[in-house]
């Protein structure tokens, strides 16, 4: 039995959907765990269990702001994600071994970039690159074509440097969640084969939670 994880879900108070509701739908869809990553805000600490992981998605305006927020949240959550999309923020995030996930590096509307240098940094520092399905689901026509094109490029780089990659729903409501098989079908749209997509939903997220790609010196301090 494969264990699927969704490591980027937003819940109340950022959205109207409480954590319990998201969890019940996710369980029915066959997920073994979800991580609540609200922007700059830790929730679900009292609910933390085998199913729910507490996380935070840091949204920063500048590099110094990002560094400050990373130091503020580091060690308090099991998952530290950075809201990507801006080129400078992307760079600062992959250079920092304290970061676990770079969420939607090509932005929510396909505006950001990742190049070979950044993807290599991400591999060295154990920062997982996230492919955000929400931007495929919620965009149409040109916007979606651009997003899919960016994801295709990033996928090529990620394969080359063996960077951890994960698929997430970035859900804001229960209606945004998609079952694992649907996520795999969506990943096929930008050229990710089934086996790769399955490991991006099972193995790699678990490795991210276990800090498998972090060097020992980075983990000891936690």
């Amino acid at each position: 039995m494969l264990k699927y994880f969704d490591l980027n879900v937003h819940a109340y108070p950022e959205t109207d959907t409480p954590v319990e509701e998201l969890l019940s739908v996710a369980k029915r869809y066959g997920y073994a765990g979800i991580a609540i990553t609200n922007h700059d805000n830790i929730v679900g600490e009292d609910l933390a269990s085998n199913y729910i992981f507490t996380g935070v998605e840091i949204k920063a305006n500048s590099v110094s702001d990002l560094k400050r927020k990373i130091n503020l949240h580091w060690g308090k959550v099991s998952l530290l994600a950075v809201h990507g999309g801006n080129d400078k923020i992307n760079r600062a995030a992959v250079e920092n071994p304290k970061v676990d996930i770079l969420a939607h590096p090509c932005g929510e509307k396909g505006e950001g970039e990742l190049n070979h240098v950044l993807v290599r940094y991400a591999a060295e520092n154990g920062v997982a690159i996230d492919f955000n399905m929400n931007s495929i689901i919620h965009s149409r026509r040109g916007e979606r074509a651009r997003t899919l094109g960016k994801m295709r490029e990033i996928l090529k780089l990620v394969r080359k440097y063996n960077t951890p990659m994960i698929l997430t729903s970035h859900a804001h409501t229960t209606y945004d969640l998609r079952a694992p098989r649907e996520m795999i079908a969506l990943a096929a749209l930008f050229g990710m084969p089934k086996e790769e997509a399955t490991s991006a939903l099972c193995d790699i997220p678990r490795g991210v939670l276990e800090k498998r790609w972090k060097k020992e010196r980075d983990v000891e301090i936690i």
Partner: peptide, 21 residues
């Protein structure tokens, strides 16, 4: 392909929905 296009449906006449096979 059909599964992917079902997964891409997010709303019907402004009512949010989610489909699962």
């Amino acid at each position: 392909e059909v599964r992917a296009s079902l997964a891409c449906i997010h709303s019907v006449n402004d009512a949010q929905i989610g489909i699962r096979v």
